[in-house]
Simulated assay, not measured.
Amino acid sequence: MSTLAPPRPAVRATASTGLRGPARLVVRQHLRAFQLLILLTVLIVAGLVAVTMWVGHDAAAFARTGCQVGSNSPTHACAQSVRDYMDSQLRLSTARNWIQLLLVLLPAVYGAFMAGPAIGRELESGTHRLAWTQSVSPARWLTAKLAVPATAVVAVTLVLTAAHAWASGQAEQYTDEWYMDGLRPTSGVLPLTYALFALAVGTLAGLLLRNTLRSMAVALVVQGISVYGFGKVRPHLWPVVTATYSSRIDDFHPGRWVVDSGYLTSTGERLPFSTCADSSEVGDTCLNALGITGRYVDYHPESHHWPLQLVETGILLAVAALAVYASYRLLRRLHA
């Protein structure tokens, strides 16, 4: 007589909440790197918040003293209070400068990671073929290689950018003009743009060279050239505003990002301010001899902040999109 085993209880189908397929493999391969990135981000933001709150407490204490920065107070108490307050503000400025440096360097690290450990090492060692034989197409493999790091990079960059913007808003002293603090690749949308640009360029470098060290070196060089190059051409990404004056004496207008300035002659010719610097003629004699009647100033007002940022963002994202497209085309040729 035979007995039948009792039927197994029905397993209720549930939707998987975790990553699957190549995305899960990418996370497992670089789990330590992702964990380190998250840990460093948490520590950096916590440190910046602590410094900002400390400085805010010092600023509130200074306000209660009734002293003012720049006032010629005869009392020693005010002099010491002002000195302590300025030292406290300097600590916040130093912390902000470190965050700015980090936001400049991180995209280069992202690009080197994509070019080296994420792409170049697998192509160099041949381990990518194993994934391609496990019902994973090359396009899907590359998509996972791009999507997982991009998600982590976007999250980290947004958190650091927001923390830096918040700390900058708490500063009372040692603040930069809008064209210094707002047009470096450390504020607005530029940190995220440079991060995505670095991922795309690093991916293309890894696929082209298929060597870990060479791919990382090329990605770092391209990122460095991009940051340096845009630093040089940034003032010319949007048309400047020109102001002319009948006076020959230059004056200072806060909030203006001056791109060019000099003298104007009666014929409308532009001459630099150093025109008569080496002349032996004294006073206005040299200026009168050249027919100089006034001066000009080419500048960006604060309203040009976002147009300048968005033009640079558009250029970088367009190049990044081309790099991603070229990566998929190159991968198709390699697979064929």
Results as ranks from 00 to 15, higher is better:
78 C>V: 09
79 A>L: 10
80 Q>W: 12
80 Q>F: 14
81 S>P: 01
81 S>N: 07
82 V>K: 01
84 D>Y: 04
85 Y>S: 04
85 Y>Q: 05
85 Y>N: 06
86 M>D: 01
86 M>Q: 07
86 M>Y: 03
86 M>K: 06
87 D>G: 12
87 D>Y: 07
88 S>I: 00
89 Q>Y: 13
91 R>W: 09
93 S>M: 09
93 S>G: 08
94 T>P: 10
95 A>H: 04
96 R>F: 08
97 N>M: 14
97 N>Q: 11
97 N>I: 08
97 N>E: 13
97 N>K: 12
98 W>C: 04
98 W>Q: 07
100 Q>N: 15
101 L>Q: 07
102 L>W: 08
102 L>F: 09
102 L>Y: 11
103 L>C: 04
103 L>V: 07
104 V>Y: 13
106 L>R: 03
107 P>K: 04
108 A>C: 10
109 V>K: 07
110 Y>K: 07
110 Y>F: 12
110 Y>E: 09
112 A>L: 12
113 F>V: 12
113 F>D: 05
114 M>A: 15
116 G>N: 05
118 A>Y: 02
119 I>C: 10
119 I>V: 13
120 G>K: 01
121 R>I: 12
121 R>M: 08
123 L>I: 10
125 S>T: 12
125 S>A: 10
126 G>P: 12
127 T>S: 14
127 T>C: 09
127 T>Y: 11
128 H>E: 14
128 H>P: 06
129 R>G: 12
130 L>Q: 13
130 L>N: 12
130 L>S: 11
132 W>A: 10
133 T>K: 13
133 T>H: 11
134 Q>F: 08
136 V>R: 03
139 A>M: 08
139 A>F: 13
140 R>T: 15
142 L>W: 03
143 T>N: 13
144 A>W: 04
145 K>C: 06
146 L>T: 02
147 A>G: 07
147 A>D: 07
147 A>F: 11
147 A>Q: 14
148 V>N: 02
150 A>F: 01
151 T>W: 05
152 A>Q: 05
152 A>M: 05
153 V>K: 00
155 A>W: 09
158 L>E: 04
159 V>T: 12
160 L>C: 03
160 L>K: 03
161 T>A: 06
161 T>V: 04
162 A>F: 14
162 A>W: 13
163 A>E: 01
163 A>W: 00
164 H>V: 07
164 H>Y: 15
165 A>Q: 11
166 W>F: 14
167 A>T: 02
167 A>P: 01
168 S>M: 10
169 G>D: 03
169 G>E: 03
169 G>Q: 01
169 G>H: 04
